[in-house]
Design a protein around this nucleic acid. Structure first.
Lengths: 148, 148
DNA sequence: CCGATTACTTGACATCCTCAATCATCGAGG
DNA sequence: CCTCGATGATTGAGGATGTCAAGTAATCGG
């Protein structure tokens, strides 16, 4: 708040930042789990569905989820049994099965997105400049394709 | 980068922010899982251990982890079998069992913290002013005691 | 055509997680 | 003191998640 002194704040170390980041991540995933649970889905099922904004092969899902490919088989099995997504053979490579959302699945994803945004009111309280700043800092600290 | 126009950036909507936040959270938890896995621990086991900076009853752990109390029984069972923590009866209330880290457990927690910080290099690349800014924005968007 | 690699599946097995039920203990009211 | 309701922890059943090893099918490079 003091704009005259050169040291406006004690300068947070990486440890404190990590703790805040952990808190933010926990809030996000907790909200996600609650919202997904409201539709009879687990957190990981909701996450898988929300990755399918465009169709992709099982292998890509496994990498994005950071888990074994055999695990994705079971996840997709259960979601396919509920009619939220389906497998489609890839004509270019018959080993590959492309996974895509059904209309029901799209509805579920839209509902999840909407409810999560509503469940994290802190993000909406930020002003335009603050959102720009946060977006830019997050993009810098977690560049796409890094650590993932 | 253009400081003359009033609209310096397109102003990121809450949806984009959410996506970036999801990415940041995923990076954090992926790093956490990798680091914990390096010590033969699962993500949730590492999380439980890192909550024990001071001893607390099983019930408190269940609430912090956001899971059923019966689940904590199993988690603590396995970690106790490895000698990373132990149960201690509470003399004031004999229903309560206080959980605390063993020296080995403290070593494990310190190692996890150190490796996670090292595994998220993006945070260290930020300058002092940027860290202050990020810390303040995160603190505003995810106030303590909210959503958790 | 052959061998190596890749995509997906299967089966075995450990862990995570919730629910319902149980036991022991605490606290308040008779 | 003694019962009654509430609370902390555990147990057992059952489903979901996750890894690993093995197997099948298809692609790719020689």
């Amino acid at each position: 708040m003091n704009s005259t002194a050169p040291t406006t704040a004690p300068a947070p170390g990486p440890e404190l930042l990590m703790e805040q980041l952990a808190h933010a991540a926990a809030c996000y995933y907790r909200s996600f789990a609650v919202v997904a649970g409201g539709q009879g889905l687990t957190l990981i099922q909701g996450k898988l569905l929300s990755l399918l904004s465009r169709p992709m092969p099982m292998r890509a899902l496994a990498e994005l989820l950071g888990c074994d490919a055999s695990n994705v088989t079971g996840l997709v099995d259960r979601l396919e049994a509920r009619g939220l997504l389906r497998r489609e053979p890839d004509p270019a490579d018959r080993r590959v099965k492309t996974v895509l959302l059904t209309p029901e699945g799209e509805v579920a994803v839209r509902r999840i997105r909407a409810e999560i945004t509503a469940g994290l009111p802190g993000l909406e309280q930020l002003g335009d400049a603050e959102r720009r700043s946060l977006s830019e800092l997050l993009g810098r600290a977690f560049p796409h394709g890094a650590g993932a």
